[in-house]
Nucleic acid binder design. Structure first.
Length: 560
RNA sequence: GCGCCAGUAGCUCAGCAGGACAGAGCAGCGGACUUCUAAUCCGCAGGUCGCAGGUUCGAGCCCUGCCUGGCGCGCCA
């Protein structure tokens, strides 16, 4: 419906331009949006306002021309069937009012599509990789990772629903100094258990889980690790601890409803010589040079503030080295869109990775680096700070345990990704009106319960073909139909802007309308025609609610 | 010192690519269950959109400066 209107509008604007002897601006893409405010009609467009800017003309005047052109196009395109009026308003908006029949048609359309309503081909089958979470396997996932997990997973769902071919990837930082520190920390705890004197390093991993890992090593190896060279023993500890932690991470994500297609190991980049190859290439094209004994990426030539060390003077690579190889690997896999979802604390890293990609000879456009801001965990009025090394954090698993997967996921998506999030455990746990996840799920359950009631009382729903929807005349009913009709646009804009939280806000609004409707109108008590029509309206609502919950990875209960 | 994100109602936040009167939830006050689930709904009250300039026919949104909070700026990750 929106697309039909958009096409008509586009024709009308073209006609107008031709008449005025002006070129249609190349980047002309007017908004056509569902209007919630009755007074402004059903749909409205800012076409004339945008055009006015480009053509340096009076917007109201242009709008007048467009509306005039519209009337003529109208007849030829059969738009008369759905369009009631098109008028100029305010500073130059064009407001469209549809005949009510148009909404009824859209309702039938929703019912025909069912839970597939809103699926789009925006992505045109393009391949997109979403890399997210990617936490070091040096400790369990905490609440901050949970936000990335939820955000990335829903973004991936959303893109898949929008016609992209999506792959989810987790980059395992299983090489480097932090893993070495994990090995050392675990080894020391192991020694401690065997009553050796230890000197625990300042920046070691102090979490309880390290002691637990040491305990397992003690069971498995007994005293044998003490008999080895310390270096060798630490290497074993590192491998054992890393594997165990990674296994835990997979499990936590699984429990959180997040699954990855690929677990990509940093270590493998060294083993396959991918790092070496990438650095060779950079040396060849002059983007990697030696200075003070170290190797530097000429990142300042590609927008970074300064050049960055890739290989230290002592020969050990920095993180950037593997990141260069990793991104080369990503680009070599020829995705149309590569999304890196990082914690906001890594934002300073963006210019150098973008620079690295360009230094390798790739156009950086397919790479989108998104940031997820920090999570402040709040328990009542107490603020919990999170630091992996200090071991003072609440894990994702604990949160899922305490508030449930549904509430946790929903809460994470209750804010824009780039805004700080206060996650209140007490609130998420509450089964009350304050908690929006139940508000939404309750709507789904309520509809299911009306179906039950209908079945019990034998009030049969007439076949769709025989139902005359024109008996749906209540303002709230029209409003619900409009709200449903807005769904494809919400999906489209959420996918285009990579902002999954818009789904959350939309669904809260939709079920709000539904709850109001429920409280003011009886579904089953009317005559069979009306009852059937209303049951179908409910079914359309249920489909969209179920679909959005599915995209959010939240269950859609039939009773609560 | 430089950079990134934020500053909207008492609180937590929306505000879609500058547009039509700034919205929601919670908290506060007052109402609605012999009814398809009250995990719901209705009503009232509540805001110089951090401050000051600027661009524009039009700014919560863009530009400049300042203030406040968070986070980064390493041959740490």
């Amino acid at each position: 419906m929106r697309n039909r209107l958009r096409r008509l509008l586009y024709d009308a604007v073209s006609t107008t331009c031709r008449k005025l002897g002006q070129e249609l601006p190349a980047d002309f893409s007017p908004l056509v949006e569902v209007q919630e405010n009755e007074q402004f009609g059903d749909f409205s467009s800012n076409a004339a306002l945008i055009l006015a800017k480009a053509l340096h003309r009076n917007p109201r005047e242009l709008a007048g021309h467009i509306v005039e052109a519209f009337d003529k196009e109208d007849v030829g395109n059969g738009a008369a069937l759905l369009l009631d009026t098109a008028e100029v308003a305010g500073p130059g908006f064009i407001n469209f009012r549809l005949v009510r029949q148009a909404w009824l048609e859209e309702l039938r359309h929703v019912l025909a599509e069912g839970e597939e309503y809103g699926r789009s081909h925006l992505g045109q089958g393009k391949r997109v990789q979403v890399e997210f979470v990617s936490a070091n396997p040096t400790g369990p996932l905490h609440v901050g990772h949970g936000r990335s997990a939820a955000y990335g997973d829903v973004l991936a769902n959303l893109l898949a629903f929008s016609g992209y071919q999506v792959e989810r990837e987790y980059y395992i930082n299983d090489a480097g100094a932090q893993m070495a520190m994990l090995g050392r920390s675990t080894f020391l705890r192991y020694c401690e258990l065997l009553e050796q004197e230890i000197d625990f390093p300042e920046n070691g991993y102090r979490g309880e889980y390290v002691r637990a890992l040491a305990e397992e090593l003690k069971t498995k190896y007994g005293l044998r690790l003490l008999e080895l060279e310390e270096e060798q023993a630490q290497a074993i500890c590192r491998r054992e601890a890393g594997d165990a932690i990674l296994q835990g991470i997979r499990q936590d994500l699984e429990n959180f409803g997040v699954r990855f297609d690929t677990w990509f190991s940093e270590q493998s980049l060294f083993e396959s010589a991918a790092v070496e190859t990438a650095l060779e290439k950079l040396k060849e094209n002059g983007n990697l040079y030696e200075k003070d004994g170290a190797w530097w990426l000429r990142s300042s030539a590609y927008g970074d503030d300064e050049d960055r060390v890739v290989v230290r003077a002592d020969g050990r690579p920095t993180y950037l080295a593997s990141d260069i190889a990793y991104h080369q690997h990503k680009f070599a896999r020829a995705y149309d869109l590569i999304i890196d979802l990082w914690g906001a604390d890594h934002h300073g890293y963006i210019p150098r990775v973008r620079a690295a990609v360009q230094a390798l000879g790739y156009a950086p456009d397919p790479l989108k680096i998104l940031l997820v801001q920090f999570v402040n965990l709040v328990r009542g009025d107490q603020r919990v700070s999170m630091s992996t090394r200090a071991g003072a954090f609440v894990t994702l698993a604990e949160v899922v345990d305490e508030v449930g997967r549904d509430a946790a996921r929903f809460f994470y998506l209750l804010r824009r990704g780039d805004a700080h999030l206060d996650f209140d455990l007490e609130l998420a746990k509450q089964q009350s009106a304050e908690n929006p996840v139940y508000y939404v799920q309750y709507a789904h359950a309520r509809i299911a319960s009306i179906y039950d009631k209908a079945r019990e009382t034998g009030s049969r729903r007439l076949p769709l073909r025989e139902v005359d929807f024109s008996c749906l005349q209540q303002p709230l009913e029209i409003k619900l139909m409009k709200r449903l009709a807005a769904f494809p646009g919400v999906v489209e804009s959420a996918a285009a802007t990579l902002e999954p939280h818009r789904l959350t806000f939309y669904i809260i609004d939709l079920v709000g309308d539904f709850h109001r409707y429920y409280n003011s109108h009886r579904v089953l008590d009317g005559d069979p025609q009306l009852a059937s029509a209303r049951l179908y309206l409910l079914e359309a609502i249920r489909c969209v609610v179920a679909r959005v919950l599915q995209l959010l990875g939240v269950s859609a209960p039939t009773s609560m």
